[in-house]
Amino acid sequence: MAFIDYYEVLGIPKTADEKEIKVAYRKMARKYHPDLNPDNKEAEKKFKEVNEANEVLSNPENRKKYDKYGKDWKHGEEFEKAQQQRRQQQSQYSQHGSGAEGFGGQDYSDFFESMFGGASGHSRQSHRPKFKGQDYNAELHLELKDVYTTQKQVLTVNDKKIRITIPAGVENGQLIKIKGNGGPGMNGGPNGDLYIKFIINNHTEFKREGNNLYKDQPVDLYTAILGGDIHVDTFDGKVKLKVKAGTGNGTKVKLKGKGFPVYKKDGEFGDLILTYQIQIPENLSEKEIELFKELQKIKEG
């Protein structure tokens, strides 16, 4: 368990008075507040530290204890236990609420828990308003071919199994909300929501933009010059295409409805756009070279 320098967390000297602590805390809280930094784990962590530092330093009793035993907390804890026993024997022990201004319902570091016993002394807890629980964020990695069709999956989030339906056509980076599957509500408030971000990995020969798919399609030189049929792999099978005579390199062909499914629109699909890549024949035989030279002569007339 590491010692936490609460003065450093708030960026104040050890001699700071109550007002300086409050100002520093307010400034830090405004900077790292989770509502102002959505989906920012680093800010959330920092905010908890700042809050914890304030819990300790804004309460004179806690601050005194921290200043006295902070670095040597283990020893301080033993000392406190002994003191507590003495006080109990004298029947004079009374527990005080912290009275500190701060944000409730959050985690404390092990260091804080061991020194101050968690948030038990937080007098504001009992009459805080009900708030919705924390929203959880999760990432789900899928392959492009997986999201071509609608599918059901069971996710485990915080030891809870959640069945979800992933509609075909979900986008890379798209966020879906699953109501009530986040953290428990505070003071009886409703549960937070679970946000799932989809990361779609693409290991296919197709590129995707929205509902359209793109692909380079090789066409041999002879078919490009003379025209003919080719067989093309689309996302859901092969199709036969007619290539016009005299097709140039880089020609684009749109296959309507052969793209990706449109999200939450059953039966609707984007387009597949093919870019013809004319293949120049390699390793020509002598006969072939001869014939090409013949063609060249005819062309040059």
């Binding site: 959505p38 890379n172 980076g173």
Partner: peptide, 20 residues
């Protein structure tokens, strides 16, 4: 925050386009 969400969305769209 609304602007930030919009920009985030735009960034995701542009990143997806860049993958092309």
């Amino acid at each position: 925050l609304a602007k930030q969400r919009e920009l985030q969305k735009e960034l995701t769209t542009l990143r997806n386009r860049l993958r092309l």
